[in-house]
Every structure is written in structure tokens, then in C-alpha cells.
Simulated assay, not measured.
Amino acid sequence: MGSAELSGGDTEVEVRDEAAEFAVRHAELAQGYGGTGDPDDPAMVQAMQMVLHIPKAEPPARSALLAAAAAAAVAVCLDPRSGPGGEWGARYLAWKRSRIRKVARRARGAQWLAANDVDGVTVDIDGAQARAFVPGPVGAIDPRIRKLQIGGTDLEHDEPGPPDPDLPVLWVNSALRMSVGKAAAQVGHASMLLAGAMPVEAAAAWVEREFRCAVRDADPRQWSELVARVSAGRAVAVRDAGFTEVAPGSMTVIAVP
């Protein structure tokens, strides 16, 4: 349809082709990320900050919290504000086209409420909440986010049962014993890769479901089967750069459509 201006008397109405705009954002994501490396100034290294809501009294289920983190990360990438001309566009592209990093922090109470005032997207899955923020230089993190703790809190592995067959599943390599913060960053990478690998129509349908997905731990037998799916082109895998917790090149998460 394209953009158009409809004249009627003195009134002009702009008609937007939202499907075409989404296709442009999806095409950018489908190109992959990285390639330009890190800037010389360490303060200008780009990262997407993420905050996990982990109340002290009633912490969420680990699997649901990771699913919320994964959905929030890809939601920022495909948000209209991250597209051409959008208010987040320049910051998003500066990050996506450099060496991808995500940093997960934790918050509760007033800290969580304050974090929700910073540009980003919050996702709630089964009562578990995570917020992904518009990426930017690590030297210019909003103080409401910078003060939040990165480590120090983990969640027990839960057993949520078989995933909904209608949802994408992000399988976490249980052998790596990643912390919840590290796993949140990795499933965030996986949701981006998965959305980019989908046909645009499938990605648009996933938007309508608010990027809902399931996160499950894969034991060694399951992991071996999933690696075979990756080799056959029926799944996508995250291979970590090895900055924290795991060895460089480790396959951390496999996403199955």
C-alpha cells in the first residue's frame, strides 16, 4: 500500500503501511549482527542492559523469567521505535552493528519501578517480569540501571513440564551451569537469532503473540539431538564469545521454531 496522503477539503491523513515498515525492521535483524568490532574507547562499547524482576519474598520461576527476558530483548529489536526514523533507531543500529553484548541485572521494589521509566520494553510471562532497554554505550548507562547489581542472586532450576507445542522453545545447555543473569543474556541472543531466521510472515505472527516462548533446560541427551537439528538447519544456536562464565565458542542456547 505504501504511505499516502488522502485529501478531503483541508484535511490530510497519512496512511502508513505497517507491514512494510515491519518488513524493513525484520530485514535488518535477519542480516545478523556484529562485524564492526569494539570501539577504541572502552566507554563507547555498546550493550543492551536487561533487568530481571526478582522480588525477595516471592521470586519467579527461573524458566518463566528467562522466557520473559528473551521476549523483551527481541521486542526492543522489532519495536517500531527501533526502525528507520524511530526515536530508538540510531542507538539500536549502533549496537546491533557492533559486537553484540547484553548485561542482565536484578531489581526489586522501588528499583524495579524506577527501571520501568527508562526507555525499553517490559514483558510479563506467567508472573515473571523482565525489561530490556534500548542499547547504548556502557559509559552512558542510565544511573537508575547502572546502580543495579549484576550478580549475586540466582534462582533454582525448575521443572515446568512439556512446553506448549505452539511456542518456540529456547533450550539452555544445562551442562554449562550458567547463572540466571548469564542465561538471560543468552536467551536474549537466541530470540533475536530466531526472529531473524523466521520468514517475515512468521515473525509478524510472533509479534502478535508478544514474542511468547518457552525456555527449558536440555540434558546431555537432548542437547545432542538439538545440535543435530542445528546441523540440519532446523534450529539456530548461540555461540558465546566467552567474556564471562563460559569458554569462548560454547554453544549456550538452541532455539527451535
Rank of each mutant, 00 (worst) to 15 (best):
S191A: 09
K96V: 05
A94I: 01
V134G: 00
P137Q: 12
S191T: 03
L167E: 12
K182Q: 14
L78K: 00
R108H: 09
A128C: 07
R62G: 08
E156Q: 14
A94M: 13
L176A: 11
L78S: 00
R144A: 15
C77H: 02
G86A: 02
K56V: 10
R81M: 02
D124K: 06
R99T: 14
K182I: 08
E58R: 15
P165E: 10
S98M: 04
T122N: 00
P165Q: 11
T153V: 13
A64H: 14
R131T: 02
R144D: 15
V187K: 06
L155T: 13
L65N: 07
G89D: 01
K182M: 12
R62E: 12
E58Q: 15
P80Y: 01
G89P: 01
G86N: 01
L176S: 09
V74R: 00
Y92L: 11
R81L: 02
I145A: 05
A107L: 02
L113G: 03
G120S: 03
V103W: 08
P80E: 00
R81I: 01
K56F: 11
A130E: 03
A68W: 07
S82N: 01
V169M: 10
E58V: 13
A190E: 05
N173P: 11
G152M: 05
D158E: 11
S191D: 02
T153C: 09
A69Q: 07
G188P: 06
A190N: 04
W112H: 04
D164T: 08
W112G: 02
V103Q: 08
R99E: 13
R101W: 09
A190Q: 04
A115G: 13
D164E: 12
G181P: 06
R144G: 15
A70D: 06
F133Q: 02
R108I: 03
V74N: 01
W112L: 03
V172Y: 14
P80H: 00
A114C: 04
Q129T: 07
I150R: 13
K147F: 05
A71M: 05
S179Y: 14
R131Y: 01
H157G: 06
D124C: 07
N173E: 13
Q129I: 03
A67R: 12
H157P: 12
A175N: 12
S98K: 08
D166L: 08
A64W: 09
V172M: 15
A75M: 01
W112S: 02
W171L: 09
G109M: 05
L93P: 10
E156K: 10
L93Y: 14
D154P: 09
S191F: 00
D79V: 00
E159A: 13
A183T: 15
G109W: 07
L148Q: 07
P135S: 11
R105L: 09
H189M: 03
L66C: 08
G85D: 04
M178R: 14
N116Y: 01
G152H: 09
V187T: 04
A61V: 10
G181D: 14
A57S: 15
R108M: 06
A128R: 04
W112T: 04
C77A: 13
D166V: 06
V138N: 15
D124S: 13
A104F: 04
G136L: 03
A69G: 11
D154Q: 10
P162N: 08
